[in-house]
Amino acid sequence: MSKTIFYARVSTSEQTSDHQENQARLAGFDIDEVVADHGTSGVTTNLADRPNGKRLFDMLREGDVLVVRWVDRLGRNYQDVTDTIREFMRRGVIIKTVINRMTFDGSTTDPTQQAVRDALIAFMAATAQAQAEATKEAQKAGIAFHKEASPEKFKGRKPTFDRAAYDQVMALHQAGQGQSAIAKATGLQRNAVIRITGDPLKVDATLTRWGM
């Protein structure tokens, strides 16, 4: 028996895929199973390399329907998206989008219909990648602007200790001293010692940004 599988992807672990599923159900899709990836980039990670995206390649069978909000949920890399859709169509899977209600079906044998379908797939995949690149450039421009307008903001919180204290903490830590003992010896708060010893490279970078 064929199934309708809904695939969702969100870019950060703080986001939820529920709204994508709800949108699909409100659009009239009768979904049998939901597969979702959270905190996964569509630009840098191919569908087959995602924890749950790769499940689709094992789950989908001839006659199944794969529903996605739009093709950018499959990915934002042109080559990966076009390869993925064509692979699923070769298996007899029908791909449908919630937005614009597009349907990609590999069963058609008419060459004109195939050409139109393939051109549309290519266009949508290219648009998804172009949007991702435009967003990235806009973010870079925004960061550059704010760095110039408010440089202190991008330094992070100013450390409550100086380079000498940092070096002293690291020396005692490498000598095997515990965090409480280091705090007592240096006069620093134990939380500061924990922060230094927990991620010394990050703390070193922060000191450098503040010219310390």
Results as ranks from 00 to 15, higher is better:
Asp30Arg: 01
Ala48Asn: 13
Asn46Trp: 03
Asn52Glu: 04
Lys184Pro: 07
Met124Thr: 11
Lys153Leu: 11
Thr84Val: 11
Asp167Tyr: 10
His19Leu: 10
Arg61Thr: 07
Gly156Ser: 10
Arg209Trp: 05
Asn191Ile: 08
Lys155Leu: 11
Thr208Glu: 12
Leu26Ser: 15
Gly106Trp: 01
Val68Tyr: 01
Thr186Arg: 13
Ser150Gln: 13
Ile99Phe: 11
Tyr78Pro: 04
Val67Lys: 01
Pro200Gly: 04
Leu56Asn: 00
Asn191Ala: 11
Thr108Pro: 00
Ala24Asp: 01
Arg195Met: 09
Ala119Trp: 06
Trp210Lys: 03
Ala119Arg: 08
Phe104Trp: 14
Gly178Arg: 14
Val65Leu: 01
Val68Ile: 05
Arg195Val: 02
Ile31Arg: 01
Pro111Thr: 08
Asp64Thr: 00
Gly28Tyr: 02
Arg163Met: 06
Asp64Ile: 00
Leu120Pro: 03
Ile143Pro: 04
Ala181Ser: 15
Met89Glu: 15
Asn46Ser: 12
Ile5Asn: 00
Ala48Glu: 13
Glu14Met: 06
Thr109Tyr: 03
Ser180Val: 12
Leu201His: 13
Asp118Pro: 03
His173Met: 03
Asp49His: 06
Met1Asp: 04
Arg76Phe: 04
Asp80Val: 06
Tyr166Leu: 08
His173Ile: 02
Gly187His: 09
Asn191Tyr: 11
Arg157Phe: 06
Ala8Pro: 07
Gln179Gly: 14
Ala183Leu: 08
Asp105Trp: 04
Gln129Thr: 10
Asn46Glu: 11
Arg61Ser: 15
Val71Gln: 04
Leu201Glu: 14
Ala125Leu: 08
Ala119Cys: 11
Phe145Thr: 15
Ala181Trp: 03
